[in-house]
Amino acid sequence: MFDSNVIKMILEGIRDTLYMTLGSTLVGYALGLPLGIILYVTSSKGLHPIPFIYRIGDFICNIVRSIPFLILLILLIPFTRLIVGKSYGSTATIVPLVICAAPYIARVVESSLNEVDAGVIEAARAMGASNIQIILKVLLVEAKTSLFRGITITTGLLLGYSAMSGTVGGGGLGDIAVRYGYYRWETGIMIVTVVLLIIIFQIIQNLGTFISNKIDHRKR
């Protein structure tokens, strides 16, 4: 069962899974981080409340997040084809992963920023700092531990979602698990892929926890 072809396939599966997970986390943050900052800043208790902008951002986040990922994957096929040129494979999977992750990331970022002590922000404001200075030099710095935990959680979530995309030909370990384990009844290969997913998840989670503890200056 585990000949060199299968091993090669599994190794490629690991590569594709990491590519999808990390790629979508990265692009997801490129969109979600600014969106989260906008949500925080424009909310009624933010640095510069603009209810209209907040409501639009809030609405978009809620709409996208209320669509189950598997449905989103299918709904977005034409859009994915437009951007990547095809609707299957790991690069194509990054598109729905990002669309799914960005609003989620925005929420995670918003709540991290909300955790920053209001007194600290007020102190910065009293020193004459502008809103941009407060965001870049105070908020993001003081929220970094929490932001980093958010990245860890998001990466773990996207690892799971990338595996889910295997059902529609997304590639990666999830794809292998579905094709071999489900369609061909090769339980051995399925178990190997699941164990690999567990190991990857553990690495991400522990690395994330380690780093966020390392950069936390608030506790001993």
């Binding site: 600290v120 102190a123 700092a129 200075q133 030099k137 710095v141 003081e142 608030r218």
Partner: peptide, 28 residues
């Protein structure tokens, strides 16, 4: 106008020196 608060409100993720120098460097 300098202000000092009851709850100190130092920046927890910055060293004492960074706490003091942030505003003059970035704002001024």
């Amino acid at each position: 106008i300098g202000m000092v608060f009851q709850s100190y409100d130092l920046f927890p993720h910055k060293t004492i020196l960074q706490n003091v120098t942030l505003a003059p460097i970035k704002v001024k």
